[in-house]
């Protein structure tokens, strides 16, 4: 079986390499993409949307269907992790739990059926099975880093019209801050800041903002995701309406991607049980 896989791999790779020279060269001005598609975007993007970053215009305006379904795919990935891991973990509730006696630092294992300390106990703190003494350097560094990362992600989102960046990247950086909190502190700490329910809700709302913007255009009598018709609602002319709508849909993408990243991490790092993480 392994030999067969190797032969198939080499065959497919060889076929690709043999035919690679038919592809146009990188940056070839005579390639089909450069003769028909790109010039239209390059010449008209700024006039249509008053947005200097052409990539953002193509992603969120000209090719907004792509981005919308991309966000939907990310949401589907979150749902897949949720249904696969959470449903399997439901039967495994209970089991033993680990607690740390705060005054002495002794770790206590409470077997199934044992009496658990109160959730807000001053004497016991619940910890993970793989618990190692918290490193104050890592904890403090992460605590100092997280607010700046979050502000940076908001900058990436808001400045997407003028510089590289946009909804997807901002969402990932924002989600990474919550994951960083979970890694440096505890899964419970980050669950307290952002519960699974919040993550699920945010991801759905994010995709809904994107789809709802398109639906609003449809209701106002234009094509789906044709932002020009939103001009009276956004109190601006048609070009600026498209510029504002790009920001609106990117906020939706950010919310969806951020929440899904956190959601997937919660389920993956705890095998769906969400009582203890890495």
């Amino acid at each position: 079986m392994k030999k067969l896989a190797l032969i198939l791999c080499l065959f497919a790779g060889g076929l690709l390499l043999m035919n690679a020279h038919y592809l146009p060269m990188w940056g070839d001005p005579a390639s089909p993409a450069s003769t028909h598609v790109s010039p239209y975007f390059i010449e008209n993007a700024y006039e249509h949307t008053k947005t200097p970053n052409m990539v953002a215009v193509v992603l969120a305006d000209y090719r907004s269907y792509d981005t919308m379904f991309e966000a939907a795919v990310v949401l589907a990935a979150g749902f897949a992790c949720f249904f696969l891991l959470r449903s399997r973990a439901r039967g495994k509730k209970g089991g033993h739990h680990y607690y740390r006696h705060i005054p002495t630092g002794v770790t206590i294992k409470i077997e199934e059926g044992g009496k658990l300390p109160a959730e807000n106990s001053k004497v016991f703190r619940s910890i993970d099975a793989l618990w190692t003494p918290y490193d104050p350097i890592i904890q403090t560094t992460c605590r100092c880093l997280i607010p700046f990362l979050q502000i940076y992600s908001l900058y990436v989102l808001a400045h997407g019209h003028y510089s590289p960046g946009g909804g997807f990247q901002a969402g990932v950086v924002l989600g990474a801050t919550i994951i960083l909190l979970a890694i440096s502190h505890n899964l419970k700490t980050s669950l307290k800041r952002m519960s699974e329910r919040t993550a699920a809700l945010w991801s759905i709302i994010g995709v809904f903002i994107f789809a709802g913007t398109g639906l609003l255009c449809l209701l106002l009598g234009m094509d789906y995701l044709n932002y020009e018709v939103l001009a009276p609602l956004l109190l601006s002319d048609e070009a600026m309406a498209r510029s504002h709508s790009i920001l609106i849909v990117e906020v939706g993408v950010t919310m969806a991607v951020m929440a899904v990243m956190v959601w997937i991490y919660y389920n993956l790092s705890s095998a769906g049980q969400q009582d203890e993480g890495l």
Binding site: V55, L130, P164, L268, A271
Partner: peptide
């Protein structure tokens, strides 16, 4: 733009997901 996405998604978050899965 694509490089930024690759740095955040490919190098950042998916590595974390892989490590989390390996742990479990």
């Amino acid at each position: 733009d694509v490089a930024f996405t690759e740095a955040t998604v490919g190098a950042g978050v998916s590595t974390v997901f892989f490590v989390a899965t390996v742990f479990q």
